[in-house]
Amino acid sequence: MRLKELVDSLGLRVLCGDEHLDREVTGGYVSDLMSDVIAHAEEGYLWVTLQTHANTAAVAAMKDLSGVVLIGGRQPEKDTLDKARARGVALLGSGLPAFELVGRLYSLGVRGRHGDAEGA
C-alpha cells in the first residue's frame, strides 16, 4: 500500500514530504522511545509516535522508514520540520490518539512484525 492511500483514507495532514507519498508502506511500528524504534522498526515501515523532537526525523531517515505520523494533533518543532525536509522524510499528522490511529491503519491492511510473542 502506498503512503498516499493512507493519507487519503485517514485524512492525515501532510506536514512535509509531499513528494514522497508514492512510497510503499511495508509495515507499521508504534513507539515513543527512539532507541526502541532504532532496534525494531524496519525499512519502509510507517512510524506512529508522539515525539516531536528533531531526532524523530533523524531516526526515520536512518531507518529509511516510509513516513512518520505525529498523533494527537501534535505539531513538530521547527527544526524537526527542517530536518525532515532536508533528509526526505514524509512527516504526517493525525488528530487521533495512537491507539485509534493504529487500529485504523491495521484495518486498512498495515501490519507490524509479530516478534517473539506470537501465540503467547
Binding site: D32, L33, M34, S35, V37, Q51, A54, N55, A58, V59
Partner: peptide, 8 residues
C-alpha cells in the same frame, strides 16, 4: 539516548 535514540 533511550528517548531520543542518540545524543543530538
Amino acid at each position: 539516548i533511550g528517548q531520543l535514540g542518540f545524543v543530538p
